[in-house]
Amino acid sequence: MAATRRSKKKVAVKLELGWGGLVSLAVVAFCIFLWMFLLGLWAGQTILTPVESAARPGLTTQLHLLARQPGSGEL
């Protein structure tokens, strides 16, 4: 009774690509990586821009604020 064991057969998966398939796979992977890189740059700029501009106003903003102060000679 115990001598009969069932062994499971392992399924071998085989993937074959020709030169055309390999090149197209490389192009698709490059496009995906480029898209993710550009999306990361855009997201980084979007997240960092408001914090930077609020912390350090530009020269023109500072000049407008100085000109609007009372006693600056502007009528």
Results as ranks from 00 to 15, higher is better:
M1A: 11
A2D: 11
A2R: 00
T4V: 13
T4W: 06
R5I: 15
R6E: 07
S7H: 12
S7M: 15
K8D: 03
K8R: 15
K8T: 12
K9N: 05
K9Y: 02
V13C: 02
V13A: 09
L15C: 05
E16I: 10
E16F: 13
G18K: 13
G18N: 15
G18T: 14
G18P: 01
W19I: 09
W19V: 10
V23I: 10
V23K: 07
S24I: 02
A26T: 05
V27Q: 09
V27F: 01
V28I: 08
A29L: 14
F30T: 10
C31P: 01
F33P: 00
F33Y: 05
L34N: 03
W35H: 02
F37I: 07
L39Y: 07
L41P: 03
W42A: 10
G44F: 00
Q45P: 01
Q45H: 14
I47M: 13
L48A: 13
L48M: 10
P50E: 04
V51L: 13
V51E: 00
A55I: 01
R56P: 01
R56H: 08
P57S: 00
L59E: 11
Q62W: 05
Q62I: 15
H64C: 01
H64W: 06
H64Y: 11
H64L: 08
L65N: 12
L66F: 15
A67N: 08
A67D: 09
R68Q: 13
G71I: 02
E74H: 14
